[in-house]
Amino acid sequence: MNKEAQSIVVTLLGGTLVGITASGRYTSYVKPGFGPLILIGGIVLIVIGVLSLVQIVLGARRESEGTTRPATTAEGGAEVEVDAHGHSHRHSRAPWLILVPSLILVLVAPSALGADAVARNAGSQAIAGMEAAPAAATKYDGYAPNDGSGSAEDSSGRRTMSFDPLPTGPDPVITIKDFVLRTLYDADDSVSTTPVTVVGFIAPAGSGYHGGYTIARLAISCCAADANPIRIHVDGDPPFAVNTWVAAVVTGVSGTGGADNDYVPQARVTNVQQVAQPSDPYEH
């Protein structure tokens, strides 16, 4: 790939990054906090690409005008050196690959991860060391719960933690992650007694459940590559097609999440409505 094409490819990638940041689409791929970084990165790439083109065009013009001032030749000569310095840039085809993410982003515009990713990455939702089975209690020493809220064991052998009070108001909105943790571990069973609103998308029922459907969301800590599904099971026929985003008013059914169903707790739905995909499709 020659330097003109390199400059154009770099500019294209920069433009794509600026584009997805400006349109807000970037939250389908990375967490919102990355926005400024991607914007700056994109702008720097555009600047590098455009200035390189200017440099190349000016260099070509000087050459054709035959103004071979000593300074110009030194500059031009050095550039050729760096260009050809051993990595055999001229023969390298790797830079062409830079077009692939740009083209996919522009032409295909991949959507945020959905039900397919949930099915592929489904795993146990128990917090490390908080599996409910009392028989394993002796092995807990090294596994502290990641939330650090402390843990205890109630009379039935269910391991519990203390949670902050729910937000006030009717059907307060909480994250699906919060809902799952409260249903599994809340000593006060807050979400089993108070209806709350969760926002997620419809997915097929997970393993351990027959029939029904899942309200799911993916949690990411950096980008979509580290996505981790969070699921709530609901009995009955799914009210919408798979991957439809919904806001559902739910109450948790205490004691339903266990080792045989990946600690996916069950919820009763009193109201479910289709909503637009949130501006940040992931939880964190």
Binding site: V30, F34, V108, P110, G114, C223, A227
Partner: peptide, 14 residues
């Protein structure tokens, strides 16, 4: 899913 993860790794690393 592949394209989303692929694009995500690129966008985050660039």
């Amino acid at each position: 899913t592949w394209s989303t993860v692929f694009v995500a790794v690129c966008v985050q690393a660039v």
